[in-house]
Design a protein around this nucleic acid. Structure first.
Lengths: 132, 132
DNA sequence: CCTATTTATCATATGGACATGATAAATATA
DNA sequence: TATATTTATCATGTCCATATGATAAATAGG
């Protein structure tokens, strides 16, 4: 029905995989890419963006790779996907530029609670809560 | 956070506008386009697709235009947007190809109720319930 | 300090959603 | 039956998410 951008899904899969590393040692792009089935060269850039966003920490050179920069228990899904959502992310189902409580679209009153629940899901769910 | 394809939003706006026509007379593309602020030539094709989907009825020639093919009280948002959703519409937040109760992704158990509520919203809400 | 290993970055390609403009086909009505 | 009006369809263009491939920069360890 509604779906996340491909890249945001990649990010979630990657972070979830990284979070599941014994003693949190760094994971190489090649490892992650193979594990979650995402093109490695593209994933490389996605992981870099997550590092810029402060979600991951990157280390170059031998034994380098990507680690969580935030403990899985405090890292929310929202933090992971936000860098990959369109800047023009509309909160309005009808796609109206301005839609809020004071100038609502035709569907605002019906959509609001559903949309809020959706946002709450991403904002409240942590990586630690995911399975494997 | 998540959003519908642009074209699906156009479709909802258009159908909502058409539904709001006194005695259900046909509405011309030009009228609709002006009212809901959508490029008319593009809208034309979108409306045509809705006609093919059985949501609208089209009439050519003078006094022609588009009308609802289904009473607003029985026309759901899902029926309006479905023709414009990607065929590969994933029900899985992590974007996994196969994700269901028996072979769930890492987020399946957490996402399921939220996703269901989302689907229920579109499946249960009718055009008649929208405001203006 | 050299070398292997790893991320960072640059250059470029591609497919599809979104859009524009023009022409064809249907039809009401005078 | 001619004409104006309206949708249907065709041809084409643009932009961005997604992706590929190659090279540069950093760093650990011998």
């Amino acid at each position: 029905m509604l779906s996340l951008p491909q890249t945001a899904e990649y990010a979630l899969r990657a972070v979830n995989f990284i979070a599941d590393t014994p003693d949190g040692r760094p994971r190489r792009v090649a490892e992650i890419s193979a594990a979650i089935k995402v093109p490695s060269n593209y994933l490389s850039k996605t992981l870099h963006q997550l590092a810029l966003a402060g979600v991951l920490r990157s280390t170059r050179g031998p034994a380098g790779g990507f680690q969580l920069a935030i403990p899985a228990e405090r890292l929310t899904l929202a933090e992971v996907i936000t860098p990959f959502l369109p800047v023009t992310g509309r909160p309005c189902v009808l796609g109206r530029a301005r839609c809020n409580d004071t100038t609502p679209c035709a569907a605002h009153h019906l959509w609001k609670p559903v949309g809020q629940q959706l946002e709450a899901f991403f904002a409240a769910t942590t990586i630690a809560e995911l399975g494997r």
